[in-house]
């Protein structure tokens, strides 16, 4: 683990991320069609944009993966010509970094729903900080700001936490995760049978 991620890990992470990058772009149009509803209903689905990090980490279970995934998803979105342009890159770095910090705090040893939710919340905090710098949401009136934050947090917990967790559970059932996770010592021991 010292030597960092292997080529296989990186490529798989990036491909997962790029797949979500495509989802992110499609999600953009949903987001904009919900936006006119007002009252920050749109913020409820904002959390989808944090999902790549937790999913990639839960699939690969290796350090650095969550950060890489969010950056890669953002760059994928960027190259495909997202109208959000460079913004997504900056946001991606911050969101990925915050999620990564959560996984790091658990020393990359916990893969349950709670870590996923915590990581989602962290990404959400990151994005809100960015919004203060970029969108000046601090100037919104207080009730409005509160509504905004609550909606976004709920959405993040749902999409990037709970949904991501179950998505990976289903992926596990397909056996792909065996490809990219370290082999257990039990399997090595079984070689000496008979």
């Amino acid at each position: 683990m010292r030597k960092g991620l292997k080529l296989t890990d990186i490529l798989v992470t990036i491909v997962i991320a790029v797949a979500f990058g495509i989802v992110y772009i499609l999600w953009g149009s949903i987001y904009y069609s919900v936006k006119p509803l007002g009252l920050h209903v749109d913020q409820l689905i904002y959390g989808m944009w944090f999902i790549a990090g937790p999913v990639a980490f839960l699939v690969m279970r290796k350090p650095g993966v969550a950060l890489l995934a969010e950056i890669a998803a953002a760059s994928g979105e960027f190259f495909l010509g997202s109208p959000w342009g460079l913004t997504v890159l900056l946001y991606g770095v911050v969101q990925g970094l915050f999620a990564e910090l959560v996984f790091m705090a658990f020393r990359y040893k916990k893969f349950n729903m709670s870590v996923a939710v915590l990581a989602a919340i962290a990404s959400c905090v990151g994005s809100v900080l960015m919004d203060f710098a970029y969108g000046e949401i601090g100037a919104l009136s207080l009730w409005n700001l509160l509504l905004f934050m609550i909606a976004r947090f709920i959405g993040s917990i749902f999409f990037a936490g709970v949904f991501a967790y179950y998505l990976v559970k289903v992926l596990e059932a397909t056996g792909v995760t065996n490809l990219v996770r370290p082999v257990s010592s039990k399997d090595y021991a079984a070689l000496d049978q008979k």
């Binding site: 080529l7 296989t8 490529l11 798989v12 491909v15 797949a19 992926l171 397909t174 490809l179």
Partner: peptide
């Protein structure tokens, strides 16, 4: 939704893995 997204995602992961193996087979080093 499950029927579409899961094969797409798991298929992409497998393909990525295969390509990474092919790259290493072409003596890719860092």
């Amino acid at each position: 939704m499950k029927a579409y997204s899961i094969p797409l995602l798991s298929g992409s992961i497998r393909r990525a893995h295969r390509i990474a193996v092919a790259m290493e087979a072409k003596r890719f080093s860092d």
